[in-house]
Design a protein around this nucleic acid. Structure first.
Lengths: 188, 188
DNA sequence: AAGTTAGTATACCGATCGGTATATTACTAA
DNA sequence: TTAGTAATATACCGATCGGTATACTAACTT
């Protein structure tokens, strides 16, 4: 099983640096010190390798967000918790999150976009659900859950992108800014 | 010259839909109804074709932003003008902006990222310059021009992405939200 | 001990990749 | 009229693409 994990590690490395389409199977197996049939034994195809990568990391990311998104009646607090949880996850999984962001923004007919899309839907459902519940306490939010979920994550990803470019740190100030900027957009 | 423009049109179509790496030269020339040597006569290489595409559209985008970013002492007004100008440009160049966004978020060692990077630097300089000038009137903004330029454009692109997914329209409400959300992040 | 299975390598597949050598046509400049 | 140039096509290049047929080995199962 050591080979399998090594392939995943090398693939994440290369995909995040050069993009899915920019990396060949040959390059992956060479860097992993194995041969093609070994890779195909574990993952079946290049697409299968990508899906395994996503499954491995995104399931944890999803759990992290879902756990932080439990609504207890205090929406700003919940949003702060989500933002902090995502920032921690990003800090611990820089390469994956870089690849994830590039996949989210990749072309709609490309393999990477198709691979990440269904996972994203689940993620957005968690946030939409949060805003739906909160809308019972904030009447002016109704029927805007989808837009809120999207712009909230977008705000977070703005700061994450700055972090990935080494322009800022993901500290409490960044959490505060992301949450309050977004809040201003919903409450007014 | 009709062929050259047709190649650019077809290439933008395919690149924006399937990504630069996901489109072959053969596919472009077939869809354009020509052959390879014609394409290579005009653009020299696949990369050259991409650069021509960027040059053609980005120079107009840059002008649009630069014109709107002239600072007259009223920062909220200037930001509103920039946001409106970008929204208009996006409405008129959906495919290009889709491709542009995907290039901005593509992997750092990929060709698309390298191709768009130097243009982005110029664009950000325009915004940094605006915030630098405005900081004389708002003391607490000093030395944060880079972060402001980035998060301001990020905010705009959040709404643009919602628009490209047909979730919202780029109307005055969207302009108001983008500007005021961002302002709340700077002034507080 | 015999059969089965997982894991791995060598060597190969057809298809497609970006790119080009050569030739031809059509127009332009002298 | 002639020389040169821009624009195009046919046919091809070596390299790389994702993927596999075959065989071997080692371990586990019965």
């Amino acid at each position: 099983m050591e080979n399998k994990e090594n392939i995943l590690k090398v693939a994440l490395d290369l995909f995040s640096a050069k993009g899915y389409d920019g990396v060949g199977i040959q390059e992956i197996v060479e860097k992993a010190g194995i041969t093609k049939p070994t890779l195909y034994h574990y993952f079946g195809s290049k697409r299968g390798l990508l899906e395994s990568l996503i499954e491995q990391y995104f399931s944890r990311f999803y759990d992290v967000v879902k756990t932080a998104a439990i609504y207890t009646g205090d929406l700003p607090l919940t949003m702060t918790n989500i933002t902090r949880a995502i920032f921690v996850f990003v800090s611990e999984n820089r390469d994956f999150y870089r690849m994830y962001l590039s996949m989210c923004f990749s072309s709609p007919d490309s393999e990477p976009y198709a691979a990440i899309h269904k996972y994203n839907i689940d993620l957005y459902l968690v946030l939409e659900d949060l805003f739906r519940k909160a809308s019972k306490d904030h009447g002016n939010m109704r029927n805007r859950q989808k837009r809120y979920a999207f712009t909230f994550l977008g705000m977070i990803n703005n700061y994450v992108t700055l972090y990935l470019g080494n322009f800022i740190e993901l500290n409490d100030e960044a959490i505060f800014l992301a949450v309050h900027q977004f809040s201003h957009g919903i409450y007014s």
